[in-house]
Design a protein around this nucleic acid. Structure first.
Length: 858
RNA sequence: GGGCGGUUAGCUCAGCGGUAGAGCACUCGCCUUACAAGCGAGGGGUCACUGGUUCGAACCCAGUACCGCCCACCA
């Protein structure tokens, strides 16, 4: 094996691009549907094609890459399928903003030219994202990259639309929908974000004299479209008015008073103004009472009702209407500020206006039922389970899904209308009848995203990919799109794939936040650009930082200090491996090696770390995986084994090279899913293998479990640490050699005298050795000659403090052992432990008293 | 209004019934021939509060107080 010259400091940039291009060109990430290996599939949640990857994507991708890489190493045919989403409304907005800079609107270009423009934008922006993914090291199968508006995926969209339409699960209806007056499109319920906003609640007197009735509203301008006042049927205050007409101020119209169960008599005055065209509840009341709907606003929220308010924006009209009412003495009370929940467009934050319009809907009832059942019966497991409840709450009470959008960018609705308004839904292979006109609208972008797990594998064709890789193994995504995306993939996947859910496990992660747990936002200036970190700390360190905080379902707080810490870890691994190589580490059989306790200890520890790593990986506990490997590598391998190995090598124990080779081979493989680049470079150097990407995952080997070696090294560590403490307290310089006598015979670490003396810089004493301090640890007495320089007062203080602790411990433990109830009820293992503590405390007391006594006077 | 989660060292978090942990930050000493992005030794916590269960509670139960998130047709 050749020992390449590795630089003394890890410089990520040197190795990252080199490795990545090689991985791709050698096809290591390619998945073969014809393989006989068990499949492992993850579809990448497709990022928005117009965006750039943010640190949240980096987390999402790091997790998926770690899972896929480990699965591949474990012998699975691993597919991580990449792609991007056309993100209808978001993308259209971005391109429109660009046009606006040139003073143009999409209407200036016309539909065709505008869509052309968006495609151009998509090519440019999408390319940027692909570059970012390469920089992060995403091990995706590039040969299978997809885009939600690809020909194949468009075909899938039309196919499922047609199927749902034929099954009666897609319908067109005039309903109150959420309308964004800025984006000029309908929105689904979940595209509306609610916030507590300040408003004004005004009470308005309708009618007069005996027919007077007071209603309250926060949207005064809508009174122009009122067509009734509703009261509860049992409300005696208004019983005499039910069925009568009252005068509607400002309009010269009279409207009926109707009785409706929906009204809460205890709220406000118990009377509600009814505006069927501009409020979803009122629409329902209107329907129950056959009330007319009067639309008073256009699609931009401008008042169209004839009169003095015509042409005013809704927010100008509101105070104007109130002022006019006040002038007529119609205002009874005004409450301001009045906090109430207001819906905003999740894209542009404009206040949403409920609007009566003709739209396409999915009847979700049967689909949502199936989506709930699949999780309930365990076909799909949601992880962490706490979040499953959220899923059920939503799926069990889902409203029909408004899928039409008045946009130009997206999948055009595959429905044509005849001259007399006849409707025909056309599948992908059909021709619309002559003279029919296609619906102008496009589908909600989440409609095509919902097909992602199977449309990307070739559905509706029965492809080899589909039968090999569907259902996918795990879906990794943030809990924020549980409803938007996960639930809808479940619905459509179960529907299209004959009851087979799209994934076996949904592994939800949290949001990335700053070091104080604050949300990242541009205005706050705490946004981390993953590429910036990749440049400064390396992709490995960036990924490791994110994974170290990634507990299932919980948010990840990160900071630059942590990224630096992760980079330091990579550097540590780099240098440790470099050291092993410099000392001839090699992979070979350990069968005939005469292993020392230190060797057996590290091998024993290694096999239990493999087991613990597997357990944590299986539960998506990435923070735990990272923590385990971090501490094993740093605290055990580097801090202890390498130091002991140095001594063994100087003693000529050549098999140490094989142990080093074995440990680093395994450690680098374990770390590879988290830290792909550094491990690739190092693993190749250690083993001479082609690529760690396709190296087998370490397996637990019980034969290496060695409790007695572990106990032995633990005792060694205790002794060394205690003597180091003494040296430090006494101000002995680390390099300064000190004479000492060791009484090792009969102790567990009798064989380690050379190591102990070497680690602690203890020399053999001269003939006339007079000890000035003695320490007793792990059954060993260390008598140290410090040539009279010992600080007696400091050591006495220290010993007295330790003695006090030991005495307190002894008292506590004695109390426990004297407690009958404890003795009779505590499990044996606990009693044994407590007894051991009692013995230890007693020993400590004797030892410390002796040490105190042995101190020279001073 | 309904639901869920949190409150442990200065900061971010792990631990979830048997002697309080990690990373970073802090103090002291070290360029010890893999690594100063490092090495060694330390300091620091009535585990939010109040009750209860238990031989034993950071951990289980009840309540309180803050904090966060999700859902909701609060006129």
């Amino acid at each position: 094996m050749t020992t390449p010259e590795l630089p003394t400091q890890y410089t990520p940039a040197d190795v990252e691009t080199r490795s990545y291009e090689r991985w791709v060109s050698e096809g290591l990430f390619r998945a073969d549907p014809g393989s006989s290996r068990e499949p492992y599939t993850i579809v990448l949640p497709p990022p928005n094609v117009t965006g750039v990857l943010h640190i949240g994507h980096a987390l999402d991708h790091s997790i998926q890459d770690a899972l896929t890489r480990r699965a591949r190493m474990r012998g699975h045919e691993a597919l991580w399928l990449p792609g991007m989403d056309h993100a209808g409304i978001a993308t259209q907005n971005v391109v429109e903003r660009e046009l606006a800079k040139q003073g143009l609107s999409r209407h200036d270009l016309g539909r065709e030219a505008f869509v052309e423009k968006v495609w151009e934008w998509k090519d440019e922006s999408g390319g940027r994202i692909l570059g970012q993914m390469r920089k992060l090291g995403d091990g995706v199968d590039w040969s299978r990259e997809r885009f939600t508006m690809d020909e194949g995926l468009s075909r899938a969209v039309q196919t499922i639309f047609k199927r749902l339409f034929d099954d009666g699960l897609i319908y067109r209806a005039e309903r109150i929908i959420n309308w964004c007056p800025r984006c000029l499109t309908a929105l689904s319920d979940i595209e509306v974000e609610h916030s507590e906003d300040e408003g004004e609640l005004v009470s308005i007197r309708y009618g007069s004299g005996d027919s007077e009735i007071v209603v309250a509203t926060t949207r005064a301008e809508t009174m122009l479209g009122d067509t009734a006042v509703a009261v509860h049927p049992d409300d005696e205050r208004y019983a005499h008015l039910i069925g009568t007409m009252v005068e509607l101020p400002l309009t010269g119209r009279s409207i009926p008073v109707v009785a409706d169960e929906h009204v809460d008599p205890a709220f406000g005055t118990g009377a509600v103004k009814v505006t069927p065209a501009h409020d979803p509840n009122d629409f329902e009341i209107g329907r129950r009472h056959s009330l007319p709907s009067i639309t008073i606003m256009d699609e931009r929220g401008v008042i169209t009702a004839h009169g003095p308010f015509q042409g005013l924006d809704r927010f100008e009209a509101r105070p104007a209407v109130v002022a006019a009412l006040r002038a007529e003495g119609r205002i009874v009370t005004e409450k301001r500020p009045y906090l109430h929940s207001v819906g905003h467009c999740s894209r542009c934050k404009t206040v949403v206006e409920p609007r009566l319009s003709l739209q396409w809907f999915v009847n979700v009832t049967p689909l949502a039922k199936a989506a709930g059942d699949a999780v309930r019966d365990g076909r799909t497991r949601i992880h962490p389970p706490e979040l499953a409840k959220r899923y059920f709450d939503w799926v069990d009470d889902m409203h029909d899904w408004c899928i039409s959008r008045q946009l130009w960018w997206g999948h055009r609705i595959p429905v044509w209308y005849g001259p007399a308004g006849e409707v025909v839904c056309v599948g992908p292979d059909e021709q619309p009848p002559a003279g029919y006109v296609q619906d102008a609208d496009v589908l909600d972008t989440w409609f095509s995203s919902a097909l992602w797990p199977f449309s990307t594998l070739g559905w509706p064709e029965r492809t080899a990919e589909l039968s090999k890789f569907y259902p996918t193994s795990v879906l990794v995504t943030g809990y924020d799109i549980l409803f938007f995306w996960v639930a809808r993939m479940m619905m459509f996947g179960l529907y299209a794939m004959d009851g087979q859910p799209p994934f076996r496990v949904v592994a939800l992660h949290g949001m990335v936040r700053d070091q104080h747990g604050k949300k990242m936002s541009k205005s706050f200036g705490n946004v981390v650009d993953p590429l910036d970190w990749v440049e400064r700390f390396g992709a490995d360190a960036t990924r490791f930082t994110l994974l170290r905080g990634a507990n299932p379902g919980s948010d990840v707080a990160i900071s630059e200090e942590w990224a630096a810490g992760s980079r330091n870890f990579c550097n540590k691994i780099w240098n440790a491996t470099r050291f092993a190589l410099m000392n001839g580490a090699a992979v070979g059989s350990l069968e005939d090696a005469d292993l020392t306790a230190a060797d057996r200890w590290i091998l024993s520890r290694l096999q239990s770390v493999v087991a613990a790593t597997d357990a944590a990986f299986d539960e998506f506990e990435f923070a735990k995986v990272s923590d385990l490997l971090y501490h094993f590598a740093w605290d055990e391998v580097c801090d202890w084994y390498l130091e002991l190995a140095k001594i063994q090598l100087s003693q000529g124990l050549d098999h140490t090279r094989l142990v080093l080779g074995h440990v680093f081979d395994a450690l680098l493989r374990l770390l590879h899913p988290l830290v792909p680049f550094a491990t690739e470079e190092l693993w190749r150097a250690v083993t001479g293998g082609e690529s760690v990407v396709v190296a087998p995952w370490p397996v637990v080997d019980e034969r290496y479990a060695d409790p007695s070696a572990e106990a032995e090294i633990l005792a060694l560590q205790e002794l060394v640490t205690e003597v180091r403490r003494f040296r430090s307290d006494q101000g002995l310089k680390p390099g300064q050699k000190v004479a000492a006598r060791l009484s090792l015979s009969g102790t567990a670490i009798a064989a380690h005298e050379v190591a102990i003396r070497s680690l602690l810089k203890l020399e053999q004493p001269a003939e006339s050795f007079a000890s000035t301090a003695s320490l007793v640890v792990a059954g060993v007495t260390v008598e140290i000659d410090t040539a009279g320089t010992i600080d007696v007062a400091a050591e006495r203080k220290r010993l007295e403090k330790d003695l006090a602790v030991a005495q307190k411990e002894a008292a506590q433990v004695a109390a426990k052992l004297g407690n009958e109830q404890f003795m009779s009820k505590a499990p044996d293992a606990v009693v044994v432990k407590v007894r051991a503590r009692a013995e230890q405390a007693a020993e400590d007391i004797v030892r410390l008293e002796a040490q105190l006594k042995a101190l020279p006077a001073g």
